[in-house]
């Protein structure tokens, strides 16, 4: 994907913005979950155009799993949340604060390096870590995919920590959802 035109990128980002607005504002929970899935798959396409095929694949898998979890949560469960829209004062206040935050962010972005010329590409005189990884990864690890080389070799402890987090979350979810050892309501157990 060598030719990322700004039009394609803006279209995909606009799609993500629209999808997230729908996901947040629509009343039906199943529709909201599906809209969030659209955002995730749009994000996967953006990754593909940004030269990150590993991220695109991972995002698709993760998005499918999250959709399965959320649909399991939403389907056949009655949503008795009252549709009381938040007060106009609250919404106005939040919008105002977010507008200010976005303005400050845009001002900060103007001072950063512009989109399309990352920092490491402009510091050939003082090589950055990315520069070293790109140069040395094949010779040192034998992996031709630099992302994999970083993930499983240069920063393997990071990946070990990730596996620990996943294990902890699975144990936590199991502890929350288990049936054994819980006092049942009717006293039949």
């Amino acid at each position: 994907m060598s030719d990322l035109t700004p039009v394609v990128l803006y279209a995909l980002l606009g799609f993500m913005i629209l999808g997230s607005i729908v996901a947040v504002e629509i009343a039906d929970l199943l529709s909201a979950v599906i809209a969030m899935g659209a955002v995730g798959f749009g994000l996967s396409l953006v990754y593909l155009f940004l030269g990150a095929p590993d991220l695109a694949l991972t995002q698709v898998v993760v998005e499918i799993l999250i959709l399965v979890f959320l649909i399991r949560l939403v389907v056949q469960r009655k949503d008795t949340t009252e549709q009381h829209p938040p007060g106009a004062l609250l919404v106005g206040g939040i919008m105002l604060v977010m507008g200010v935050v976005l303005t400050i962010m845009v001002m900060a972005f103007s001072d950063m390096h512009p989109f399309g010329s990352p920092l490491f590409s402009r510091t050939a005189a003082a090589p950055t870590i990315a520069f070293d990884y790109l140069r040395e990864a094949v010779a040192q690890t034998g992996a031709t995919n630099i992302v994999t080389a970083i993930l499983l070799d240069f920063r393997a402890y990071d990946t070990l920590g990730e596996a620990t987090v996943i294990f902890a979350s699975i144990v936590g979810a199991y502890a929350v959802l288990r049936r054994v050892g819980r006092i049942s309501k009717g006293g039949t157990e």
């Binding site: 990150a52 991972t58 990315a130 630099i146 992302v147 970083i150 979350s169 936590g172 979810a173 929350v176």
Partner: peptide
Amino acid sequence: SVDPVPQALILTSIVIGLAVAAMMVA
């Protein structure tokens, strides 16, 4: 080439997002 370092770190972050989602759904 594009910068590989953010990609490697975000790959970890995506998977951790899945773990967080599973915990929240539970």
